[in-house]
């Protein structure tokens, strides 16, 4: 058994609706092997995003983690203090969201915003940071890093913004990247490029990726293993080829038929 970077055990998250509360994530077990890409697949409302947000502990205030543990490098993240979590977030675990427009502050340059992460998490000086940012912009496949550095978020197209966000997320060389529907709002051609970028990052930087998506197609072409989720429960896990070839769960079959 290969070493795991993250191990989620019996994670339960509930939402309070007036007097009652409802489990939107129900006793979920999920682990990600080091240096692998795992796809978490499910329909909207299945609770897949909640798992991603639970890992970095950025749940909306209505949601409450009721039980279970999330082991990251052997420590339970759920017992960490908020200040310790802040260090983990961004430094050891990066996150990429669906809508890259809201992820950037429109009044600062792209370069400055990537730089901010480095300033907060590392001790590099100004020049080294700038060199690093330019390198990052280059890694995620944006042409002309010097120009991108000076651009404001609205200057970039959706795909470029998504790349910039990935650059920001991997700036501190995290061990794990959580990507929540990173390509759902993008054109298929751009989506294909982002997928390739993920694959490259995985190889070059030994980055583990948790890809949260509703699109089995993306997962089947990118991920090493799959976890299928519906109604807050993980109904099937396994190596990608196996799951794609012979799905054991009915829901997985439905998903496969749609793809």
């Amino acid at each position: 058994m290969e070493p795991k970077i993250i191990k989620i055990q019996n994670l339960t998250v509930s939402v309070k609706q007036g007097e009652q509360s409802k489990n939107i994530v129900d006793k979920v077990r999920l682990s990600i092997a080091e240096n692998s890409i795992v796809g978490l697949v499910g329909g909207s409302g299945s609770g897949k995003t909640t798992i991603g947000l639970s890992i970095i502990r950025l749940l909306a205030s209505a949601l409450k983690i009721d039980g279970g543990e999330i082991l990251f490098e052997g420590y339970n993240l759920l017992t960490y203090s908020e200040s310790k979590m802040r260090e983990i977030r961004g430094k050891k675990i990066g996150m990429v969201f669906q809508e890259p427009l809201y992820a950037f502050n429109p009044v600062f340059r792209i370069g400055e915003q990537i730089d901010e992460v480095l300033r907060f998490h590392t001790r590099l000086d100004v020049n080294k940071r700038k060199a690093k940012v330019l390198e990052l912009i280059d890694i995620v496949g944006l042409y002309n890093p010097n120009k991108i550095y000076q651009n404001y978020p609205h200057h970039l197209s959706g795909g470029m913004r998504q790349r910039a966000m990935i650059a920001q997320a991997i700036a501190t060389e995290p061990k794990l990247l959580i990507a929540d529907e990173p390509t759902s709002n993008l054109d298929v051609t751009i989506q294909a490029k982002i997928i390739e970028l993920f694959r490259e990052l995985n190889k070059k930087l030994n980055l583990s990726i948790l890809l949260i998506t509703h699109d089995l197609g993306v997962v089947s072409h990118l991920c090493d293993s799959i976890a299928v989720m519906t109604n807050g429960k993980i109904v099937e896990t396994g190596k990608t080829e196996e799951v794609m070839k012979s799905p054991k769960d009915k829901y997985t079959e439905t998903l496969l038929n749609c793809y």
């Binding site: 298929v188 051609t189 989506q191 294909a192 490029k193 390739e196 072409h221």
Partner: peptide, 12 residues
């Protein structure tokens, strides 16, 4: 061809 590769094979 590019569109096709992206949509069917998720390849750019």
């Amino acid at each position: 061809k590019e569109l096709l590769a992206a949509a069917v094979e998720y390849r750019s």
